[in-house]
Nucleic acid binder design. Sequence first.
DNA 1: TTGAAAGCGCTAACAG
DNA 2: CTGTTAGCGCTTTCAA
Lengths: 343, 343
Amino acid sequence: MPTIREIAKEAGVSSSTVSIVLNGKSEERKIPQITQKKIMDAARKLNYHPNVAARRLRIQPSDNLIIAVFWASDFRAPMMVRFLQGLQQAILKSKKNWEVIIHPYQNNKLNESMQALEMCNAAVICNASIQDMRFLEHRSFPVPTVLYNRHSDKFCTVNVDDNLLGAIPAKVFADRGHKNAGLVVSKSVFPGMDVRVSSFLLHAEKAGIAVRQINQENSMEGGYRGGESLCTWNPMPDCLFCTSDMMAIGAMKALLRAGVRIPEEMEIISVGNGERELEEYACVSLSVVHLPMEKMAEACFELVLDLMAGKVEPPYSVELPVKYITRDSCGGSADQEDAAENR
Amino acid sequence: MPTIREIAKEAGVSSSTVSIVLNGKSEERKIPQITQKKIMDAARKLNYHPNVAARRLRIQPSDNLIIAVFWASDFRAPMMVRFLQGLQQAILKSKKNWEVIIHPYQNNKLNESMQALEMCNAAVICNASIQDMRFLEHRSFPVPTVLYNRHSDKFCTVNVDDNLLGAIPAKVFADRGHKNAGLVVSKSVFPGMDVRVSSFLLHAEKAGIAVRQINQENSMEGGYRGGESLCTWNPMPDCLFCTSDMMAIGAMKALLRAGVRIPEEMEIISVGNGERELEEYACVSLSVVHLPMEKMAEACFELVLDLMAGKVEPPYSVELPVKYITRDSCGGSADQEDAAENR
DNA sequence: TTGAAAGCGCTAACAG
DNA sequence: CTGTTAGCGCTTTCAA
């Protein structure tokens, strides 16, 4: 990367003149057109880009702190919104001046994004894949860092009980007398997901519920395909557990379209990882095991603060409770009539 | 903000020792516990936070460029996801090393977030309110900047034709013989929204369509309330235009619950500002005037590149076409049977 | 109208 | 084990 001095040499002027021109202050400093042009040409020729760190160091602006959130820019991107909301809340509560920057990264390529770490005062790393985790464990970190929804014996982390996330729906289905469950899952991208699934399978088995599993993409379309294949089974299951809201909504659409009545003929529970409204305003409002992402974000932030204050030493893990939210798609306490009308 | 040197003075050591300890390299450099403790205590006492710009300047890591996206962290947050996808696409195409950081900011408080501008090589500012725009117009910018979905005679901008966004649904309704329309809108947060609404009103009037307007919050809940009040009208409208997907989906739920058949008794068109799947997998798939956010993001990025290469001078505006997407909620070319089944 | 020089806060090489 | 020192790239006086 060329510096301002190289531009100066190329243009045959001093570096301060270059700085003036490049910052658009030619007028007030009365730099003649010819000089300006020489400089601009040189800058273009050398493909100059200002070094932002140097500029900032010099300008030395505000004294607020920067927290970076690393988030995978794949199918999980939509969930960033809930996390962000929680984080903003926590920051407001703290009454301190924190700026948030979100750094989207490619799955398995967290290592390529690490330069951003060096420009912040604290970091929360989310969605790390197994490979990304391996990278993280082997790296020394210049800033206080918290991991979201992962386990580590090097970092501070914030988690939920993945076992419960699978056990609760199994128990609800058992309590409601179901014996034949469908399970629509997406490809596991971190160990916790496997835990959820195997926990569901385990508790279903214990309760004498037969389970058949469908693997699909984590999207409404994937869920729709899952729902379609569910319809071809004989006998059809009488209940369905999906590991994401997206898939549940897709599956619901496929089932309704095939004439399956929800919840009368098929009760559905999902892992509540999407926006609340998405669940509430689904064709049939969706019963979920709520993943408290906003609360988790708050916990991440508090952990960062504690880490910085030396109140906590890594590794230290916070685990938040999950809760089952009953809506129309399974056990809806509200009027079943409404649910029927909604089909 | 205290510096490393102040810590050093406080602890009675040199600044390099402080640097070593604070970077967790005490072991390899064999700094004794006592010294470590002195330093840590001093740092804590003075509430030390490293200056990230200085660190970065020194470390001088990768040579990739940083583009910052400023996005309002309110009800518009979910739309960030689509923008981001488009941006990532554009970056991939460019074959250059760009890192994206998203900087969420509070509506009307863009000015407080501007320090982030100084740490990036380019910026796209989105969702600026009128007040934010006023601030922007009066400020000189150190980095190439593009405005998303706004008009300016200072900046480069990327837009759609807001007139069309209102005119198209009016025309579709007219062509389909409707005479009585509902209009659910959220509070205007930038002039373009007013243009969309007044354009719809204008073209509806021209076509002899009576319109009644409901103002609601931009959310599914707001849409639901809008749908509820629609049901109380006499006569009920036979078509509905919503200025956002969220509201349309909420309204649809209210209407279906009230027993209104969609599209037979009520055709719905929305401004397609949400995720495609959300529209496709709504109870009745949603016809929309598609807002090409991904394409707009790409255009923003290309404009940034052109700006940096000197191929373009601000102000320069790019306008992208919008297109009407027919789905079941209005004129669904597909089988009406399916639509009926979905109720 | 332009250049020389100081210095932002930090890290790392090297010297003690 | 710890301190001295150079310098990252930039902006901004101040002097010429």
